[in-house]
Nucleic acid binder design. Sequence first.
DNA 1: TTCTTCATGTAATTAGTTACATGATTGA
DNA 2: TCAATCATGTAACTAATTACATGAAGAA
Lengths: 207, 207
Amino acid sequence: MSRGSALTTTSYAILGLLTVQPWSTYELTQQMDRSLGRFWPRAQSKLYEEPKKLVEHGLAEASTERMGKRPRTVYSITEQGREAMASWLRTPGDGPLVESEQLLKLFFADAGTRADALATLGAARGWARERNTENLAVARTYVAGEARFQHRVAQTMLVGGFLTEFYALVDRWAEWAGTQVERWPDDPSEAQPDQAALTDIVRKADW
Amino acid sequence: MSRGSALTTTSYAILGLLTVQPWSTYELTQQMDRSLGRFWPRAQSKLYEEPKKLVEHGLAEASTERMGKRPRTVYSITEQGREAMASWLRTPGDGPLVESEQLLKLFFADAGTRADALATLGAARGWARERNTENLAVARTYVAGEARFQHRVAQTMLVGGFLTEFYALVDRWAEWAGTQVERWPDDPSEAQPDQAALTDIVRKADW
DNA sequence: TTCTTCATGTAATTAGTTACATGATTGA
DNA sequence: TCAATCATGTAACTAATTACATGAAGAA
């Protein structure tokens, strides 16, 4: 046991999916697209790799099915896998990571034009709206009691609550930032601070 | 020109810092710790690597200073570098990426105990408070007009506004999620959905 | 004068992505 | 029967991290 390299958070993400039911690799990629990818995004090819590692560690089993003539691999969790998952859940885990190219561009907006900054903010709002639309559609299926994993609603809604708030935050923030940038001159490096908005930030952060 | 591998977003993050002033590599790592790392986190060693790439591309120049007897490298931007930065700012950039081990653990909370989930939420709140405290301290220096890069306040406050809202979001969300989890039985896989909270999510997402 | 922290960097490793390849199924 | 899309996987590459190494400065 415990051959191969160490398990990563991504390994546990896959293992977590396996606690729900057995999946073929392709089905795993679907879940990545639909749900898991919103808070633990990974490329498809990872999803073909990680389950093999789980098998090496004895946490999952692979079985080969025939799909027409073509074989496919279905993974299911082992008892040892369930224990490993429970043990992983016992430690709280790292805080969230935010990575935003758009924030980066705004942070350095004084090296570009006011129009650039407004375009970036527009893209941010567009992104938020798109994601929110998807998210809303999913949430509605749970309310209707028709979700594929309806029995996991109590867990799913915790994450759904976060994402809902996050998309709304991006939208509201981009709107606010837009009102700021609109007051800038064409050359952003000469933008004057909006003292009221600045003290407002401090007020909001003072909790 | 254009030798070596292509520029990445991380390259432009460094280039952006160079638009502000010349920096030694160590000073760059400081900025990563203090500001940039909040929305474009990268390991120190990257900050020793990327500037070399900028030099290869003709976007920055390296000069060697003496710090006592030990040499150190200071990087400054070239005219071509400023143009490259301006050109990069002309495209809006990808939407934000969120990566959260804590959300992952909550999503799979039914494979662990109720106490595990509460501990994870506690850690999330702790994280939010810590980050917010830092953030608040920085914001106050800007209000006081004493920030090191006070002339960049208009750009910085856009990012500051986002981070402030984000930390507040994590805290509020973790508190809300805590009230949900407290209603769970010891075995989270038997948790009943809180219909009111669920419809509330849909209501909030419906904008 | 020794210890610690600040400062400067390189090397080894790995996690993750992009690109490619191709079989099966469905619908026009 | 042809094209498009779904499904299954591998290979090559690279961005990024972790670990290591060590000089200089300041404190005890």
